[in-house]
Write a protein that binds this DNA or RNA. Structure first.
Length: 878
RNA sequence: GGGUGUGUAGCUCAGUUGGUCAGAGCGCUGUCCUCACACGACAGAGGUCAGAGGUUCGAGCCCUCUCACGCCCACCA
């Protein structure tokens, strides 16, 4: 190929879109074109609630780096893209927008169909944006398999799952206390609550003058629905009352209070008596059920309705009041009657709806539930058992059916959560989502699909959005059909997600997959932390600190963004994002560009694709860089394989900038006056460059692909096989010799710098005992700016600045510039250091316990270092 | 209340099973627009690896405790 015209700086904007298009056209995003063992990643589908943020940039980089690496390693690599309809968040978002536009009650004003249409329009637009953003980031996913949690295919999977679970008796309809968002008019699962601390008043009072119990509550208005008083079974104070019933008049409302014993009650708290409100407390409801199971129906009286207001059952004084109003009223009455014993301010932890934002009410309702504890017919295990097995023994004890999590500590969190898992409330009262596949006609109920005949009405509720995303790893592959994809790609290989959805999503995917397929959803999970802003704060609308990844891509490059979000980041830990990081990354991208530019324009012929054996390393530097490259490949492959992206990119940066650019390229310049050396070096330059581009490609796909074009205008880098160097021996001699040479050059440069010798001014140097670098005269002269380099056996007589490196004494002639005091001080300091070093080494080596117990290699290195240090000290003193 | 994470150069963070390696980027200081790159080159300063004990021949890495900050969970009404 001819000499390419490469601009001085890499301008990503000019190339990225075209490159992505070329990749897409090439067909390599689709595994059907690939051979080898399958390697599958399912993209965690972003919510269609808006645009992508930096967390998605991180996720896309992780997934894409992994999938590109695996593809280059010859795997049949599949990354399935998709989006999530995100039921509650999306509906909440659109309703909020409508209300901002002036609508007061979107649901009532538009009705189900029209509101769903509005949400769909919003979601579709949002989805388009998201998909284009994914492309901007360079994600190499298979667009032919694009999925959406709310499309036809996924609806089939959801209905099938629901139906099977129902017939297995796992899904049931039950009247129980739920978390109710009054604002959203919708249930929330336990996982959808966000707990916030707030101040509250704790009231201590008696129901009436003639009951012996004093109770406490922050919600005295709910006490209108009390049906029992609970005490600890061993509490002597109340022992005689258990089993009795008290008729009381509480603020004008007649209550029948059963005295029950329950282990849950802490006898040391307050008076040890707890007012039981089955309708408005999950704990109390549990007591109610327990009593009922023992034949003691204490009753349940809902006094707060779905609208958040007091019900008729709360009594005519209170019906229709808000709970705050009712509370004031109750407290006032108690106070007037002299029943109020105490009021105190306390810190309280309340659950709020993560999407609607209001404090949720506990209200009893009929909802659909998933039983996680009941044995699955024919399998003898509950869903909870399966979830546990998948992380511990493997499903059915099969080690291959075991999910591993990186970092491992999340396994414990997961398992703890599994043990405390309660039944999952599946039904939601919003309209955006998969509708519960149940139809009613009178007393009849049919689950699965709409029966023949007229008069069937479908359940009004929709399903929790996680019910559909739980099946993501296999619904995307065509389940419930037994497709080839399902055969080939499931269980998936690798999954990455943020720790914030460990409970919400990871657990549900394991549950669904284990239930439906008796398979784990993925073999390995990589947990990443949250991307925060420069000050360690969350990105949020209220702080207005949001950063659009697309803006960053446009200002710098997708590669720089990708590099900056994974570098210096470890799994499970949060990271901070700030532009300086991207700037640094962009400098690296540009450096790689200029390295390439130099090579491609300075070598005689660009002949890529040579075998290692064809290379004719003729100099130390040649041997050294090839050894370093071999080492690099080993390191990068090991790190990429282990999903250690940060370490992989650090190694690559180090090699690229230090070894290759600062040393090898500079040396190659110094040596190219010799045509024979230049020929062999040219070949090596190109060889290293093409390897380096390959190794960089998973992390920085665009710039590497663009440069690759100048090397090879036929094949795309995306499809290039990862060149394994592992079988080539490291050249340890060359590495050691080169290290010495680098030290010698560094020492000379140091002297130049100390005496402020201008770069253009050449220096004269005498080396004593520098035999081992004698053959590298040209390199030393060029890189250290030396014009006269002589090798002697005796120290020169005239004035010099000097320094000792290894076995070599370096004397730089500086004429009258030499500062004797400075030189003396310098060597004294150096001698002192050395003596200290020698002492510490000697004491260790004289310690027999050390020499006998430490590995040979460690001892040998120390002995070597000691000898060297001694020699150095000797030279220094002459 | 329980659990868990973090604390390493001025800043942001790496540090893979304990072994001469205390590192990177940014920032800072000094010198240079040297024919790939000033988005650059060269040199340099800067750390008792939060603190105290312990295990070990050897600890930033393991154990115990303390301090600081963060996160998650929990039915103290």
């Amino acid at each position: 190929m001819g000499k390419p015209e490469m601009p001085k700086a890499y301008e990503a904007k000019l190339y990225e879109d075209a490159i992505y298009e070329a990749w897409e056209k090439s067909g390599f995003f689709n595994p059907d074109k690939l051979k080898g063992e399958p390697f599958t990643i399912m993209m965690p589908p972003p919510n269609v609630t808006g645009i992508l943020h930096l967390g998605h940039a991180l996720e896309n980089t992780l997934m894409d780096s992994m999938i590109r690496y695996q593809r280059m390693r010859g795997r049949k690599a599949l990354l399935v893209p998709g989006t999530d309809h995100a039921a509650v968040p999306t509906q909440a978002r659109v309703e909020k927008m409508l209300m901002e536009e002036g609508m007061r009650f979107p649901r009532q004003e538009l009705g189900r169909e029209k509101l769903v249409e509005r949400i769909r329009a919003f979601a579709d637009a949002s989805r388009e944006t998201i998909l284009s953003q994914i492309k901007k980031m360079g994600t190499s996913c298979d667009w032919s398999r694009l999925a959406y949690t709310f499309d036809e295919a996924r609806n089939k999977a959801v209905n099938e799952l629901f139906t099977r679970m129902y017939h297995d008796g796992l899904i049931y309809r039950g009247y129980r206390v739920v978390n109710w968002s009054v604002k959203g008019q919708c249930t929330c699962s336990d996982d959808e609550l966000e707990y916030v601390d707030r101040k509250a008043k704790l009231y201590t009072f008696k129901y009436s003058a003639d009951v012996p119990f004093t109770i406490a509550s922050t919600r005295p208005e709910t006490k209108l629905g009390d049906t029992a008083v609970a005490v600890h079974p061993t509490d002597e104070r109340y022992k005689d009352f258990v089993g009795k019933t008290f008729e009381v008049n509480f603020c004008g409302v007649p209550l029948r209070l059963h005295v029950i014993a329950d282990e849950h009650v802490d006898p040391a708290f307050g008076t040890g008596a707890l007012g039981v409100t089955p309708a408005h407390s999950a704990v109390d409801f549990a007591m109610y059920e327990k009593q009922k199971a023992m034949g003691n129906d204490i009753g349940i009286i809902p006094v707060i309705g779905a609208d958040g207001k007091m019900t008729a059952q709360a009594g005519k004084d209170f019906a229709g009041l808000t709970s705050e109003e009712a509370r004031e009223n109750v407290v006032a009455q108690l106070r007037a009657a002299g029943l109020l014993v105490q009021e105190e301010e306390i810190e309280q932890n309340v659950g709020t709806s993560d999407r609607f934002g209001d404090v949720v009410e506990a209200i009893p309702m009929t909802q659909w539930w998933l039983d996680v504890q009941k044995p699955i017919p024919g399998r003898g295990k509950s869903l909870r058992d399966l979830m546990r097995d998948a992380l511990t023994t493997g499903l059915s004890g099969d080690e291959k059916q075991r999910v591993t999590i990186n970092p491992e500590r999340f396994v414990k969190l997961y398992l703890d959560r599994v043990e405390h898992l309660r039944d999952w409330c599946l039904s939601r009262q919003i309209w955006w989502g998969h509708r519960v596949p149940v139809w009613y006609k009178g007393e009849e109920m049919v689950v699965g699909q709409i029966p023949e005949g007229d008069g069937w009405v479908q359940d009004e509720d929709t399903l929790d959005t996680w019910f559909s995303s739980g099946s993501w790893t296999f619904s995307t592959l065509g389940w419930p059909e037994q497709t080839d994809d399902l055969q080939t790609f499931h269980p998936t290989s690798w999954m990455q997600m943020g720790y914030e959805i460990l409970y919400l999503w990871l657990m549900r995917m394991v549950l669904m997959s284990a239930y439906a397929l008796d398979e784990i959803p993925f073999h390995e999970v990589y947990i990443h932390g949250m991307v925060q802003d420069k000050n360690g704060r969350k990105f949020s609308k209220s702080l207005n600190n949001g950063i659009d990844p697309i803006d960053i891509i446009e200002k710098y490059s997708a590669d720089a963004l990708r590099f900056s979000v994974v570098t210096g980041v470890s799994p499970g830990n949060d990271s901070r994002f700030y532009e300086e990081k991207v700037e640094a990354a962009q400098r690296l991208v540009n450096k790689l560009w200029n390295i390439s530019r130099f090579i491609l324009t300075s070598v005689e012929t660009v002949s890529h694709g040579r075998a290692f054996k064809e290379l004719k390393p003729s100099t130390l530097a040649d041997r050294w860089i090839l050894s370093r490259l071999t080492r690099l490949e080993e390191d990068v492959a090991a790190h990429m394989g282990a999903a250690e992206f940060s370490q992989a990119s650090e190694k690559l940066r180090e090699f690229t900038w230090n070894d290759f650019a600062d040393w090898y390229l500079e040396i190659s310049k110094a040596q190219r006056v010799d045509p024979k050396i230049k020929a062999s070096t040219d070949a090596i330059l190109v060889y290293v460059l093409e390897h380096l581009l390959t190794y960089w490609h998973p992390i920085m796909p665009f710039v590497t692909e663009q440069i690759w074009k100048y090397l090879d205008d036929q094949e795309l880098l995306i499809a290039h096989a990862w060149p394994v160097m592992r079988l080539i021996d490291l050249d340890l001699d060359a590495e050691a010799e080169m290290a010495r040479l680098q030290e010698v050059i560094g020492a000379m440069r140091n002297i130049r710098s100390q005496y402020s010798v201008a770069p253009k001014q050449k220096i004269s140097v005498v080396l004593v005992g520098g035999n081992e670098v004698e053959s590298h005269r040209a390199v030393i002269e060029s890189l250290a700016g030396v014009e006269s380099l002589t090798f002697e056996t005796q120290s020169p007589k005239d004035e010099n600045a000097s320094v000792v490196v290894g076995q070599t004494q370096i004397f730089v002639s500086l004429g009258g510039l030499v500062d004797h005091e400075k030189e003396l001080a310098k060597s004294k300091a150096q001698a002192k250091e050395l003596e200290k070093y020698i002492r510490s080494l000697t004491s260790k080596l004289e310690n027999e316990e050390f020499t006998s117990k430490a590995p040979e290699q460690v001892v040998a290195t120390m002995e070597h270092n000691l000898a060297e240090a001694k020699g150095k000290l000797e030279k220094l003193c002459t």
